[in-house]
């Protein structure tokens, strides 16, 4: 059964230096608060996994928490680059970052294999690309029935999977809806899991595309309102698009970045204090 804990305690207990950690959220329900708590607790040498590393991964990389990144698309959608990620890859700032890159279909297949308890997954992809040359975790298998040559990718089995969901019930079952990405697979593929929720309710209501993870596949449930800020949590909050566009100049300048992280993350004790530290204009009009 999942236990209810504070985000501080969940990160302290489950995420250790050197772990492989997947904070998933495919453009919606992104666990920003968990990433910032990892930074507060000064974790290091992490192998970070994410299909779409965005601002929170830029922060983790820029603060030196990551040794390696496994990913398929790293950007600040619609707003610019991840300059801390780029600085790490282009100039080893703050230190060398090992990268292992796939396509989205390849990453999704790897999570599915992990969630299924299989050693690898397969897909029709990568043929003719340079990805197949530079990424050692892309190989080939021949279908024993048709002879078709298919790409093979090893299962992802992170030490810890971290996601956001909209709700938990009192028993620690969690429910998410809207765009649910690869979050279910990330939890089921991981050895341990932390789920941040917007709200704890007595009973779930039906939702279109509602996905429920039973309490017994989740380790810790943390009540963190707006835990996915500045990303979306459908029916709770809209994307704070101004935050995304304002990130570009902060990320671009290493000094400015470190000062921002000091003020808003290291000097705050939790996510509520982080939100309170922001310009109130960044929190306007985000109710969904």
């Amino acid at each position: 059964m999942a236990r209810f804990s504070s985000l501080h305690d969940a990160v302290a207990e489950h995420i250790h230096d050197g772990d492989t950690v997947a904070l998933e959220g495919f453009t919606h329900l992104i666990p920003f608060a968990a990433g910032q708590e990892i930074i507060r607790q000064r974790r290091k040498d992490l192998t970070l996994v994410r299909m779409t590393p965005d601002i929170i991964y830029d922060q983790l990389i820029g603060m030196g928490c990551a040794r390696k990144l496994i990913f398929s698309w790293a950007g600040n959608p619609g707003a610019g680059s991840l300059h801390r990620f780029r600085d790490a890859v282009e100039h080893s700032v703050p230190h060398h970052l090992e990268i292992e890159e796939h396509s989205h279909a390849g990453m999704a297949t790897r999570y599915q294999a992990g969630a299924s308890g299989l050693p690898f997954g397969m897909l029709r992809g990568y043929a003719g690309t340079d990805l197949a040359t530079i990424t050692p975790t892309i190989s080939w298998v021949t279908c024993p029935f048709t002879g078709e040559n298919l790409a093979a990718v090893p299962a992802l089995r992170p030490d810890v999977g971290v996601i956001c969901a909209q709700q938990a019930d009192r028993d620690g079952n969690v429910m998410m809806w809207g765009i649910t990405g690869v979050q279910k697979e990330a939890v089921l593929a991981s050895q341990r899991s932390i789920v941040l929720v917007e709200e704890v309710v007595d009973a779930f209501s039906p939702h279109t595309n509602g996905v429920v993870l039973p309490s017994w596949v989740v380790d810790d449930v943390c009540l963190v309102p707006s835990g996915s800020y500045p990303s979306y949590a459908q029916d709770y909050s809209q994307r704070a698009s101004a935050f995304y566009s304002q990130w570009e100049p902060i990320s671009k300048d290493c000094e400015k970045f470190l000062a921002w992280m000091d003020e808003h993350v290291l000097a705050t004790s939790d996510h509520a204090e982080f939100l309170a530290s922001l310009d109130p204009a960044l929190l306007e009009d985000i109710n969904d």
Partner: peptide
């Protein structure tokens, strides 16, 4: 790289 771009995303498949 001179410039690190976002990467593959969904494009290869």
């Amino acid at each position: 790289p001179q410039v690190r771009l976002p990467g593959a995303g969904g494009a290869p498949e």
